[in-house]
Design a protein around this nucleic acid. Structure first.
Lengths: 213, 213
DNA sequence: AACTGTGAAGTTTTTCACAGCC
DNA sequence: GGCTGTGAAAAACTTCACAGTT
């Protein structure tokens, strides 16, 4: 949840919605559409059309009055804004069940990411193949990340090791961490390191609040 | 993102933070602590202490002035509020790589959830074992969910099938869906069905906005 | 007629700051 | 002295509503 002075100072909450818009635009393209509007996007996403227009207006006028948005053009612009008009190499730490699933997931490519290396602490896993990559020992994290200029990492190790792994990654130059371990990471020493979390239980617990019996 | 008239009308954004607090309290307990304060929690989570106090105050006074919060007591109260002081049966749809990882994940138990059944459309996967459960055919979704009174489901099927699966689930009586497919689900017809999303790429794209070069 | 982009208005959320208690 | 719980103030965010364009 690190805040950050990027180019301007566009609210992070707006940045968080851009990938959602981008995903919806991908979908529209797949469906063969070429033009859309803030109303159509809003309907599909359950977001008001005004919000979509306001969000997009932070980055310039991407639409045409009376017509709407050219989907291919808007996708291109959003990819530029989010800097996913290139491919980011990602380091994956952890080759257990979860690491395997992440390593084999086909959904990163085409959306700006490419898993470039995998590490695990378990002697038995080192040398194994996950998603076409050879699992490397933890001791090689720092050198590999530095040599290959990797800035993005995913943590899929047990909670008790996640903080130590984080410190190794940050020391190696990682600037963005997606943490699958169910624990909050302390990166308060580095204000240029971004952390995001994935914990399915958090989402489930948020929904059970509303359920009956 | 369905909003909802639960007991009172406490902001959903507050509900969303409670599981995070609960997770941090679990951690403190594991570390052997018995008492904490809004300041300590805030420091660990990167949230202001005032916000934590305000959030908790919606549900009653759980703390003691001068002392702070009794961790075990606060955990218990939060579990009650979130209704995770019981175990919810969860249906898992999809037994591919992702479904396997979810099915084998040990982190649901102890936090209020228990995967009760798994379904897949692929003939070859039916009958296989995932996390100790036998994969059932899709045709059995509705009857199984009804008979066992299941209200919570996770979707781990390809994006193109996610909407159809959602409709089956909702017809069967499911009230909470955690969707791993990278697509927005339309449940606008049912205002008592809650949906949450997990898409790692969304988190990654949100961070690359802030990276340099 | 349909749609964007945007100031202004309205609403929600967060922070402040302090009385009251241990 | 340290902490909670909470009204009041401040800040952030969303929606309204409409001028301007196609």
């Amino acid at each position: 949840m690190a805040s950050n002075p990027a180019n301007n100072n566009i609210p992070d909450i707006v940045i968080g919605r851009l990938p959602v818009y981008l995903r919806a635009l991908n979908r529209l393209t797949q469906e063969g559409e070429e033009v859309t509007s803030s109303h159509e996007l809003g309907r599909r996403l359950g977001i008001s059309s005004a919000q979509i227009r306001k969000d997009l207006s932070h980055f310039g006028g991407f639409g045409k009055q009376g017509t709407g948005y050219q989907i291919a053009y808007l996708e291109e612009k959003l990819r530029q804004v989010l800097q996913v008009d290139r491919e980011w190499k990602v380091a994956l730490i952890g080759a257990g069940d979860l690491g395997n699933a992440i390593g084999n997931y086909r959904g990163f490519t085409d959306r700006g990411f490419h898993i470039a290396c995998i590490f695990d602490a378990d002697e038995e896993k080192i040398g194994a193949t996950v998603g076409g990559l050879t699992v490397q020992p933890m001791a090689e994290i720092e050198s590999t990340i530095r040599e290959r200029g990797i800035q993005v990492a995913m943590i899929a190790v047990p909670a008790e090791h996640a903080q130590a792994v984080t410190e190794t990654l940050v020391d190696a130059g990682i600037k963005a961490i997606l943490n699958y371990a169910p624990i909050n990471l302390d990166v308060s020493k580095r204000d240029d390191v971004h952390v995001q979390y994935i914990d399915p239980v958090l989402h489930l617990q948020r929904m059970t609040y509303y359920l009956k019996g």
